[in-house]
Simulated scan of single mutants.
Amino acid sequence: MNALIDTHTHLYTEEFDADRELAVIRAVEAGVTRLLMPNIDDTTVEAMLKLCEAHDCCYPMIGFHPTSVDAGWKERLEKVKGYLTSSSHCFYGIGEVGVDLYWDKTFREEQMIVFEEQVKWALEYDLPLIIHCREAYPELLEVLSGYKHTALRGIFHSFTGTSEDAERLLEYESFMLGINGVVTFKKSTLPEVLKNVPLKRVVLETDSPYLAPVPYRGKRNESANLVKVAECLSVIYGVPLSEIASRTTENALKVFTNAEKSF
């Protein structure tokens, strides 16, 4: 069996209330042996921690999602930071964070402020940054440009951009591109784009419960489905599934260096 790492899954959300434990079991049985879990905001931390404390294969991260930025963002961000600074918890990344202007541009400036604050957390605590970006590359890169030559590392989560987008993001040499079920979609341009992206810069993710790969598209996604993403990359890169597994695992460990001893 090929061991895979899901670098981005939200099995702690309400979509899994009916079968959460089974979802973890199905993932492990499918060969997805490590599940990295980005937080969403101040309302989700406890549920995430509860799941991660129950399973050695689950690794929590802490962050404040851009779509959660609202009028009360200062207090909410401070609450999330309280978990990070507490000695009670061990986190493996800062995420997921970023800028999202797809649904609403009302808090554009605030999203950029919140993002930059969390970039500083990642540097201060030597943790990888898990970046979400939707319809906001200019804003995202405006913030990141000042940190290009720092020790910052991480993942550009759910990459679905163009070859030009990929080229700009890969300039951040300690970052990987997170590839999920979108790569399997019939009209996806990702297979073509990835031909210009070295396999050494790619990690696997599901973004469960979202973005289920073919043949599960339209249904709730879960970490066990990561195998379908790996199989698709095997075809794109023309290498055996075992090589996709080993190379993407190696790539993930370059990002999550503080988790390496527990893998």
Rank of each mutant, 00 (worst) to 15 (best):
W103D: 01
P38S: 09
P138V: 12
E53D: 14
P38I: 08
M112D: 01
K79T: 07
T106D: 08
D104G: 11
T67H: 05
L123P: 15
Q111A: 11
G72D: 08
W121D: 02
A27I: 07
T44D: 03
H132N: 07
E117Y: 09
C52I: 06
T160A: 09
S68K: 04
R134W: 09
I113S: 07
T43H: 06
M112V: 06
I62Q: 00
E53R: 12
G72M: 03
T67I: 07
Y59H: 05
E29T: 15
Y83L: 00
V69D: 04
L35T: 15
D56M: 01
V97L: 01
R76N: 07
Y125P: 07
E53H: 15
A54S: 15
P66S: 01
K120C: 12
E116K: 12
E124C: 13
D126S: 15
Y59F: 11
S88R: 09
K120L: 13
E109C: 06
T85D: 12
V97R: 06
E139K: 10
A136H: 10
L123V: 11
E135F: 10
T43I: 00
A136F: 12
T44Q: 03
I40T: 14
L51I: 04
C58T: 13
G98C: 08
G93N: 04
H157F: 13
E142S: 03
P128T: 01
A136I: 04
S145M: 00
R134I: 07
D100Y: 07
M48Q: 11
P66T: 01
Y137R: 13
E78M: 09
G146K: 11
V119D: 08
L101M: 06
E96C: 03
G63I: 13
F115K: 03
Y59A: 00
P66W: 02
C90H: 09
A136K: 02
M48T: 11
P128A: 00
C52K: 02
A122Q: 12
D70N: 10
D126E: 14
H132L: 05
E53Y: 13
I62L: 03
E46L: 05
I62V: 06
P38L: 03
L141A: 01
G98V: 04
E29D: 15
F64M: 06
G93Y: 05
H55M: 02
G154K: 02
V45G: 01
P38Y: 03
A54E: 15
E75P: 11
K50F: 09
W73I: 00
W73N: 01
E124P: 14
D56H: 10
G154Q: 01
Y92L: 06
R34E: 07
E110R: 11
C57A: 06
Y83N: 05
A30P: 12
E96F: 08
K105E: 06
A30N: 05
L140P: 14
D70K: 09
